[in-house]
Design a protein around this nucleic acid. Sequence first.
DNA 1: GCTGCTATTGATAATGAGTCTCAGAACTTA
DNA 2: TAAGTTCTGAGACTCATTATCAATAGCAGC
Lengths: 140, 140
Amino acid sequence: MASPNQLKKALKKEGLRYTQQRQSIWDEMCATDEHRDAEEIYLSLRNEGMSVSRATVYRTIDVLVKNNLVRKLELGDGRARYEHKMDLEHHDHLICVQCGKIEEFMDETIEEIQEKIVNNLGFKLIRHIHQLFVICNNCR
Amino acid sequence: MASPNQLKKALKKEGLRYTQQRQSIWDEMCATDEHRDAEEIYLSLRNEGMSVSRATVYRTIDVLVKNNLVRKLELGDGRARYEHKMDLEHHDHLICVQCGKIEEFMDETIEEIQEKIVNNLGFKLIRHIHQLFVICNNCR
DNA sequence: GCTGCTATTGATAATGAGTCTCAGAACTTA
DNA sequence: TAAGTTCTGAGACTCATTATCAATAGCAGC
């Protein structure tokens, strides 16, 4: 179960109310490490008997993304996927173009070079997307 | 003007016909180094008096992407942008989150590390997306 | 250069992820 | 408890992209 404190803090910061729906959406997103889309999260909640609407799922996810509790992933298949940021370490993704399996990777050197590239241009790095599309060992 | 040979060769390889529309869409995409979306390409062609439909623009772009003549960029704003691959050097993109300006970057070390990461997992690298979202020097 | 076969095209309908609207429900504060 | 707000749900809407299908136009063989 996701801690309500993190959520409550974020909502307070935004001047928003703490509600059942928002808590259960946050719980649902923390319930697995899979990368699910809004529809999947919506259907899971409905299956569990929660009263919640698609609109509220999208609205709540926005709040969570804005407050850095959730990361939005665009993997090029036309629907956004989400991952919670309970475990704090940053990472990027490998995606198998055959089976769709998603793995994570992280490389300190790449992160440093990115910073260097941006700084050399006089820019400020806000965020990055780094996705490696592969054929995984199962699919080869 | 884009050489018809590259296009003709690609079409022949796929068993597809060489048509006026396909040539003019390819020409239009090669006419600039900007990163335009399908609608912008469609409107440019119409302004030039070409008879072409949106559907054909989308279909032709698919062919060009599949045959590696064009690269599709998903910058997270809900519409795909495209760049021709006439000048062969690979690069990735910096995008200003304020003004939307797109710059290019390329780093040999990052490319090598990517390969290493994928190989170590026993995977095969097909393609990658690496986008740095920044605030550019003009917007700071 | 014709003929006939088949891929391509254009107009438009359909799709689908995500957003907007607005009336009613649920908090909050007094 | 009342008044004032914020939230929610249902469904309408948007907008990029895809599918449909009759008409058109390449292309291979004559």
